[in-house]
């Protein structure tokens, strides 16, 4: 099961890199979504895939009686998913606001913070 997942992780990273090279901010963010997914899946695979049982000690016993799967990678992924969910939600709202405030999501035309030298300095307005 590891091998196909490794290929999938590679494909996801590739697709993420492709999307993130776009000038369009929305596509960049989609790339970021894929990058996060690829990273989480990679954590899962790197943590070791096993058909062993979940890490639960039976009632009454003080130790498990069979080989258990490592629960730590799953805990890491869960944390990472929660964090990346929050960050992506923020980033998407920011993209909406950029479209509203700047009138574009093309990063080539987003020059308000660092305008060419002949234009007004942005700090003057802040």
């Amino acid at each position: 099961m590891t091998f196909p997942l490794v290929i999938l992780v590679g494909l996801l990273f590739g697709a993420a890199a492709y999307l993130m090279l776009e000038r369009n901010l929305v596509r960049f963010l989609f790339g970021l979504v894929l990058l996060g997914t690829a990273a989480n899946l990679m954590l899962f695979v790197a943590g070791g895939l096993t058909p062993a049982s979940p890490a639960i000690v039976p009632e009454g016993a003080d130790r498990p009686d069979e080989v258990l799967a490592n629960a730590l990678p799953q805990a890491l992924i869960l944390t990472a998913i929660v964090i990346s969910f929050a960050l992506l939600a923020f980033a998407l709202v920011l993209a909406v606001r950029a479209n509203h405030d700047l009138g574009t999501v093309d990063t080539d035309h987003m020059r308000d913070a660092e305008p060419p030298p002949d234009e007004r300095d942005p700090e003057a307005a802040s």
Partner: peptide, 14 residues
């Protein structure tokens, strides 16, 4: 809130 703020934030966040 302002144009420069939004622009700067986009680059920082990304």
């Amino acid at each position: 809130r302002g144009r420069a703020q939004t622009d700067g934030a986009v680059k920082y966040v990304a």
